[in-house]
Design a binder for these strands. Structure first.
Length: 416
DNA sequence: ACGTGCGCACGAG
DNA sequence: CTCGTGCGCACGT
């Protein structure tokens, strides 16, 4: 309901601001939404946070300030010319409908995720921390000041609510890892990394490697509504990322291999970096010091953040099966997940797919109100044609996730 | 006061 | 070089 409405409004606003060549920052977004639809800035802010958590909207630190991107339009930096053309055309809202055609893939690439191509690993990760680098510089202020660049008044409040969180984030770097001076101007933070690089390669010291990634966020911040778990993914890991579902229905986390734990991140994404919004709170939670694998918190409980790394090892074996040998990196922990699959809510399902690297398609699941039970009932044709999503991602989603989840669930069921 | 359009410089590939 | 971004300005309301 309103959620989708907001999603549309916000994405539309972001697109609109971009086409006007104005920075899509919180203040402008809130203002435009209020102007066009009469929505309160607070509400807009809360909805925006949710979209960020589901990766429909990406929060990035660009040129020292916070900016928001329509995830469906973000392209991976790799642009090849062919696509380019499309790019322009493509787009549209990622939102529900969007998923289907528009983007043809070509450009569809979402930044973070692009499954189109190879995809693979779907894991992309999300956010990182704010500008970490920036932090040093402007960030300071911004943090507390929040991001709003200009003194916005009204919005300020709004922003504060939500913003506060992020603001904090900056400092966040948990592990202290952050090198600090990321000179790079900002980019570094890197946000998502696709997987390309292996963590190991990046020394901690390297700028990118930083920890910025943590994107942790915590939902607490915007208590507004539910926070979802987000989906965060981690970046660093290349393929090895592991996705495990934790007990909670929603919870999934993705981890990187252990090695990486923390470090590396790089940016895959675009130059911009994603900012973690929520970071702040979480940091604490997560303790941080260690690493960063992140876990995603899920809906109800975030408690588990701590598990992070440990889990993977265990699961790995099993998981392999699931993956089909692909070796890819996504492993699902079946046990837990299956138990709860029946209890997954629509949001949990959407979060799961976002975390798995299909944020765009996750929207389609949400739109179609697919919860855990519905997911168990989905057939191949439903996924390929019933969601209006592109065939490529649909095939991957079905083969690597839906089928795996269903199989796992039923197998366990039998056992029991 | 606002919203809008866009030239231009910047930085990344 | 191309392309995405967004500042800063001019202009419309």
């Amino acid at each position: 309901m309103s959620e989708s409405k907001y999603r549309e409004w916000i994405l539309d606003t972001i697109d609109s601001l971009r086409s006007r060549k104005a920075r899509p920052d919180l203040e402008r977004i809130c203002r435009m939404v209020r102007r066009r639809h009469g929505s309160e800035p607070d509400r807009t802010c809360a909805e925006l946070e949710k979209l960020i958590q589901e990766q429909t909207v990406l929060k990035v630190n660009y040129k020292g300030s916070i900016s928001y991107r329509n995830a469906a339009k973000v392209q991976r930096r790799s642009r090849k010319k062919d696509d380019v053309t499309l790019t322009t055309a493509a787009r549209r809202s990622a939102v529900e409908e969007a998923s289907h055609s528009d983007l043809s893939n070509g450009d569809s690439a979402f930044g973070p995720v692009d499954q189109d191509e190879e995809d693979l690993e779907a894991d992309t990760s999300l956010a990182m921390d704010t500008d970490s680098n920036a932090d040093e510089e402007g960030a300071d202020e911004s943090r507390d000041g929040q991001e709003r660049p200009s003194p916005g008044r009204t919005y300020k409040d709004a922003s504060m609510h939500c913003a506060s969180v992020r603001a904090v984030s900056a400092p966040c770097s948990p592990s202290g890892t952050r090198p600090g001076p990321g000179p790079a101007s900002g980019l570094d933070c890197a946000s998502f990394q696709k997987a390309g690089e292996r963590p190991s390669s990046l020394p901690p010291s390297s700028p990118r490697a930083l920890t910025h990634n943590d994107w942790a966020y915590h939902s607490a911040v915007c208590p507004a509504e539910r926070q979802h778990p987000g989906m965060q993914r981690d970046k660093a890991a290349m393929k090895p990322a592991i996705l495990s579902a934790t007990t909670s229905p929603g919870a999934l986390k993705i981890n990187v291999k252990k090695e990486d734990e923390g470090k590396a991140v790089d940016s895959g994404l675009s130059s911009d970096q994603l900012v973690p919004n929520y970071a702040a709170g979480l940091d604490e939670t997560r303790n941080v010091s260690d690493g960063r694998p992140q876990a995603l918190s899920l809906p109800s409980d975030n408690c588990m953040l701590k598990n992070k790394i440990d889990i993977p090892s265990i699961t790995a074996a099993e998981d392999c099966l699931l993956n089909g040998g692909k070796g890819d990196e996504v492993f699902v922990k079946k046990e837990t997940m299956s138990q709860n699959l029946m209890q997954w809510t629509v949001a949990d399902v959407a979060s799961y797919f976002s975390a798995a690297g299909f944020p765009d398609q996750a929207v389609a699941f949400r739109t179609q109100e697919i919860d855990g039970k519905s997911l168990l009932l989905m057939q191949r044709s439903d996924v390929l044609t019933g969601l209006s999503i592109r065939l490529g991602p649909a095939l991957k989603i079905y083969e690597r996730h839906v089928k795996v989840l269903q199989r796992t669930h039923f197998l366990e069921y039998e056992d029991l």
